[in-house]
Design a protein around this nucleic acid. Sequence first.
DNA 1: AATTCCTCCAACCGCGGAGAC
DNA 2: TGTCTCCGCGGTTGGAGGAAT
Length: 281
Amino acid sequence: MGRAPCCSKVGLHKGPWTTKEDALLTKYIHAHGEGQWKSLPKKAGLLRCGKSCRLRWMNYLRPDIKRGNISPDEDDLIIRMHSLLGNRWSLIAGRLPGRTDNEIKNYWNTHLCKKIQGITDNEEDPEQKLASAKKKKKNTKKNNKNKNKQNTSKNGSEEEKIQVYLPKPIRVKALSLPRSDSGASSFTFDSNSSSSSQEKEESPETITEQVMVNMVGEVGENYDDFGFWGDHELVNARLDMECQSYIPSLEKLYEEYLQVLDMDDYSHNNLDSFAESLLMD
DNA sequence: AATTCCTCCAACCGCGGAGAC
DNA sequence: TGTCTCCGCGGTTGGAGGAAT
């Protein structure tokens, strides 16, 4: 069976948005606000599905979107966040004001993946590295396209993709925000102000998340041996959403984690005590 | 100058979570 | 409690435009 496509209705536009459509959507949202995506297109006079409208607004039309190159700082933060959170693009985007999950996801796939891969490649024989780099440049996209088209050779070119983290984290439960909250955008922070830009009575700026400290590859590969996901798979790391305090604590956390990994005889116990040190009440 | 290859990113798709009923 | 509907997320695709040949 399967679910019917949301845009299956005949007559709905797909593909790139026109300036007219953009104008209609922007005008409507300015007048009525976000939300009610399902009914929005009809009310706004758009022949689009609600999802498409939401996506266009979230990723392109929103006034607070920052355009232009990702700065080195942002770059670095994305890498660190990704090592902690995995492909949780919306969460990562929440820490980068003005950036969208889609943008970060694209940036990761096009730039950072290669960057990470480059770092990994440094460990191999330089000649081999050079050769493989050349080969890669030639073939990567082609392979990708073929892979996508054929989508059958699961163990073929796919193996080239570096797994930065293993396995996919479970969906965290902590963000119990009202539905009207627009996900990532609700976590934007104002780096200039000392208080959160979205202070409310219930202090949503401080949110506890269960972050899986599966961390990066080295541990991930061996987690099963350790029974890492048994009693200790979850570490309640408190990610303070006030970024001013969040970022330094994240860095500290990350450094501590690296130190644990650097220990010659790092073991389950090391990781255990590291994880326990993160537990907060 | 023409063609092919590659990169980037906007947009689509399907799924799962959560609220409404 | 179960079902339906909406929303948001993450993976994937396709095409425009630039680079290389």
